[in-house]
Design a protein around this nucleic acid. Sequence first.
DNA 1: ACCTGAACACCGTTCAAGT
DNA 2: ACCTGAACACCGTTCAAGT
Lengths: 224, 224
Amino acid sequence: MAIKAQRGERRSTALSKERIVHAAIEILDAEGETALTFRALAARLETGAGAIYWHVADKDALLAAATNAVIARATAHVGIRGKPRQVIRSIALSVFDTIDAHPWIGSQLARTPWESAMLHICEGIGRQLLALGVPDRMLFDSWSALVSYILGVAGQNAANARIANPHIDRQDLFSAVIARWAEFASDENAFIHKVAKQLRNHDDRAQFLAGIDFILAGITSKCE
Amino acid sequence: MAIKAQRGERRSTALSKERIVHAAIEILDAEGETALTFRALAARLETGAGAIYWHVADKDALLAAATNAVIARATAHVGIRGKPRQVIRSIALSVFDTIDAHPWIGSQLARTPWESAMLHICEGIGRQLLALGVPDRMLFDSWSALVSYILGVAGQNAANARIANPHIDRQDLFSAVIARWAEFASDENAFIHKVAKQLRNHDDRAQFLAGIDFILAGITSKCE
DNA sequence: ACCTGAACACCGTTCAAGT
DNA sequence: ACCTGAACACCGTTCAAGT
């Protein structure tokens, strides 16, 4: 039997957009944003770098598809039953937790609000506001405030978490900055000095939820 | 007179971190994020690419310094006088407008919350909450919600504005997506369909402010 | 139709060499 | 101390050539 391997053999499994996106997510989760290169991806898929372009337009499209896939998976099973306020909280938290678990999504959120996963979130929040009996004149503003807050804050939070070096404990980094801000009391930092202790011990997730509750309370109070 | 120009003459004005950051901001504002390369920056400053590294650690540091400079300039003159609610609104709007005018800041916000400009914003918001008479138990949550919202939403908004192509009108792009979402009425998009008209005509800045007002109303209602 | 991998046109960053 | 610019080690993307 003659061995046939002149120019690199073909991989056994056929390539597909789905397989490419899946492999991309694995790299992003395991090694972070900087590790996702077409060369690394091609190596993992046992193909040439150029082959990927047959299935995916470019790197932006790849990241958009990866983001959409992860968000879709995470929000698909969010309960629609329950009290409206509680459902809104759980939609918000599922977005927050998903972005926290896949910090590379943070920088992509703004670039891909156009995919189906985003529609699902937007629709979910809107529906609960209807169930809450928010009057028509306030519906759009209320919806917009909630969705903006959820995507904006979750996105920024992920970007914080993403700040490069996984070797440095983020809590330590944060504490150091706060300490620098708070260590000397002056006219310039009277407030920060006052809340320094809470800043040091704060929990991003709890703060995120507290913000949601303020918005919900604001909506309720304006309904009256 | 002998002409002396063996290895490229030196530029007349001395280099400095300040001059470098200033030139970087000009490039970012005029041509966008992708145009800021060390080669382009060196050309504009009439120097070698490597010279910049004597004054700035790396590209991250350069972007951080540029962000801080722009935010500092914009928030320095925000009035501290006036009713607390109104001052909070104007701080929020100055951040929003600054980021809108310099969209490249959007992606940097999360990476540089540690600079002095950010302290100024944080302190400004906090002070107004004190003036508003927010009780201690709610002070930190209220402050966190407002600051998160301002930075998060303004950041995402800039990232939207940044979506590459300046040739394509963003409003058109947005309308097209909404249209796609809203064009068929189904169980999947009942809410979006309902607010489609407002979505098409919405004003990002007004929505941003409406969100601030919901949070302020929420804080007030929880104070009672 | 789909895949391969060399080649192209870039990057950020370093560093020996200059003043 | 400060600057120069070639060199290094990468990128994303293209494309002629293969199956």
